[in-house]
């Protein structure tokens, strides 16, 4: 197990290298001089040159990259082109908002997804199974930003149950979390159901039945624990989807998080800010996946060693 964890951590190195390289190249692959774009198209040459000097853009690429990475390692993402403030200071409060939104939505989707999946599997082919799977299919097929708009229109604007925008108060949390969590709940419900059905057909479930175990105990004690193991992987992937989904949800509900920040930065051509956000979200995602992989491995080690 320890060797596995160490190996997985070592495997992160090329990934992190690739991610930083890609994000680094973002700026340089853009048509035109980055400094010119950032300074504005009409900026005079000496302003652009001064900017290049200040940002180190006049250095050779490999030196720029090394500096880029070593700065990131110290959480120094440079200065925002818009505000002239250190990006890390701008992002810090937004990071927690986004993380909160993603975590609440993950919890919601796990909770609803697993319960719905179990009910569906246990009552296979019943009305509740069909309805749950239909709802899940809709949840999966719905653009979440549209769901957000519809929720906002009815529950906030028309009926006034919740505030339409913002983040912080309990009321403000409800609609964005539902918006973001729905698709995840749908995916987890489908996965739980199929995993559950597969486990129920296993030999050891037959053994439990032959032992005289009650059907309810078979479901919750013998089957569920096994069935949830593959669901863990899906939860990890869903967390990634949720992280990126915050971009749309935050835009819909005007939440001041990282998702909106990255959009504003793209529109303003504030490259350092774009780079910083993308790196932070990706690295977070990579580490969440690492944790998921390790826990999957841990949960699964009893199953396949053959």
């Amino acid at each position: 197990m320890t060797t596995y964890i160490i190996r997985r951590i070592f495997q992160l190195i090329p990934v992190l290298f690739g991610v930083t390289l890609f994000v680094f190249l973002l700026m340089h692959l853009t048509p035109g001089k980055p400094a010119q774009i950032m300074a504005g198209e009409s900026a005079p040459t000496h302003v652009v040159e001064r900017m290049e000097q200040r940002l180190g853009l006049d250095q050779p690429y490999h030196i720029q990259y090394v500096r880029f990475v070593s700065n990131i390692a110290q959480l120094d993402f440079g200065v925002s082109m818009r505000s002239n403030l250190p990006i890390i200071d701008e992002i810090r409060p937004k990071f927690w908002v986004t993380l909160e939104l993603a975590i609440y939505s993950t919890i919601l989707s796990i909770f609803i997804g697993i319960i719905a999946g179990i009910v569906s599997a246990v009552r296979r082919h019943s009305k509740s199974d069909i309805i749950i799977m239909l709802v899940a299919l809709f949840g999966l097929s719905m653009p979440n930003f549209w769901l957000g708009l519809m929720l906002m229109q009815w529950f906030a604007i028309n009926w006034g149950w919740f505030p339409p925008t913002g983040w912080g108060t309990p009321g403000q949390v409800v609609l964005p979390v539902i918006t973001l969590g729905t698709a995840g709940a749908a995916v987890i419900a489908r996965m739980t159901r199929s995993s559950m059905l597969e486990v129920i057909s296993q030999d050891y479930i037959r053994t439990a039945r032959a032992k005289g175990v009650k059907e309810r105990v078979i479901i919750y004690r013998h089957a569920l624990k096994n069935a949830l193991i593959p669901v863990v992987t899906v939860i990890g992937l869903q967390f990634g989807a949720l992280l990126s989904g915050t971009v749309l949800t935050e835009t819909v509900f005007a939440i001041n998080g990282m998702g909106r920040y990255v959009i504003d930065s793209i529109i303003a051509r504030d490259f350092p800010a774009v780079q910083a956000t993308i790196i932070i979200i990706s690295v977070l995602f990579v580490f969440v996946n690492l944790i998921v992989d390790i826990s999957y491995r841990y949960l699964n080690k009893r199953i396949d060693l053959d």
């Binding site: 890609f22 994000v23 990126s244 989904g245 971009v247 793209i266 993308i278 979200i281 990706s282 995602f285």
Partner: peptide, 14 residues
Amino acid sequence: DVLLAFPGILLALA
């Protein structure tokens, strides 16, 4: 793996 490290819409955004 590197491409997968950018979750969801983020890669497309980048």
